[in-house]
């Protein structure tokens, strides 16, 4: 017995070493980001507080770019507003008697929570973003995140005040997208080398596209509304499979200077999830 104990003491460094290696590997091989524990991510409030403080300084650096983007977006929205106002006026003239026609059903479905990016990376193989809005602000896992230019990512770990987002620059994220004005959809994912580009795969061969066409979300998942801008087609090539195209897409969102974002809240998500669950149950 004494021999055994002295054996353990003599070789204790090996046991310590192996223990820590095993612990690390357990973490390492649970790579599925949806199963990450909130305390071991940047949604952890202590860590996020540090980033929040650092961000107080950093947020001034990109203001000029953010301002330009906002101005452009503002101009676009202004134009859209005017055209919509005109449309509404025309419709009001047409349907004065029936005012329910003026309540578009889609409008209430999605709401947006404005959040500030407190940490972000673009150069790693698996990139994540931390936002300063959490459960108390209505943010839940699997909500979409956009910025003024386009799609940013999907929320996956939520703390009370902060949340961590799987960036579009993460091979674990696949986004259902289509080319604007076209109903065929494909799956967009990051290839892991250049933060400015992503790949749109599995696009049916009969899809018509040209370099410069806009790629938008398909709206087939409950995460993003239909038609959110994602990027523009840079070039197309034959995919691995002969029946599909693979397109190189230049992303609208500049992840390197990302500072503000909006979390998309889908008010119908519970209903949609219930429907999806019903699919799996055999009918009686």
């Amino acid at each position: 017995m004494r021999e055994l104990i002295s054996f353990f003491v003599r070789n204790s460094k090996w046991f310590f070493f192996l223990l820590y290696v095993v612990l690390s590997c357990v973490l390492l091989f649970s790579r599925n980001p949806y199963q990450h524990h909130v305390y071991l991510t940047t949604a952890n409030s202590a860590v996020a507080t540090v980033y929040g403080a650092a961000n107080e300084v950093y947020s001034y650096f990109n203001l000029r770019q953010a301002n330009n983007d906002l101005n452009e977006r503002n101009a676009l929205l202004q134009a859209e507003l005017i055209s919509l106002q005109n449309q509404v006026l025309r419709m009001q003239e047409d349907t004065l008697a029936n005012d329910t026609a003026l309540m578009p059903e889609g409008a209430r479905r999605f709401e947006f929570v404005v959040a500030h990016v407190v940490s972000n990376s673009v150069a790693k193989p698996y990139n994540y973003i931390t936002l300063n809005k959490g459960e108390l602000d209505g943010v839940k896992p699997e909500m979409g995140v956009v910025d003024q230019n386009g799609v940013v990512g999907i929320v996956n770990v939520v703390g009370p005040h902060y949340s961590r987002v799987i960036s579009l620059l993460n091979p674990n994220l696949k986004l259902s997208c289509k080319i604007k004005g076209n109903s065929n959809f494909g799956s967009l994912s990051w290839t892991g080398s250049d933060p400015r580009y992503a790949t749109l795969e599995e696009l049916p061969k009969h899809t018509v596209f040209h370099p410069g066409d806009t790629v938008v979300t398909s709206g087939y998942s409950a995460v993003f509304p239909e038609g959110l801008p994602v990027g523009v087609v840079e070039e197309g090539s034959d995919g691995k499979n002969d029946n599909f195209f693979t397109l190189k897409v230049k992303l609208f969102t500049d992840f390197a200077t990302l500072s503000n974002a909006q979390v998309v809240i889908n008010n119908d998500i519970d209903e949609l999830n219930k429907l999806a669950e019903a699919d799996y149950k055999p009918a009686r």
Binding site: V21, S24, L27, L28, F29, T42, S121
Partner: peptide
């Protein structure tokens, strides 16, 4: 460092070694 950079085990393993 892993917690701060969302690398989940990468640096824990490497630092131990």
């Amino acid at each position: 460092v892993d917690i701060f950079s969302n690398t989940y085990g990468v640096n824990a393993l490497s630092c131990t070694v």
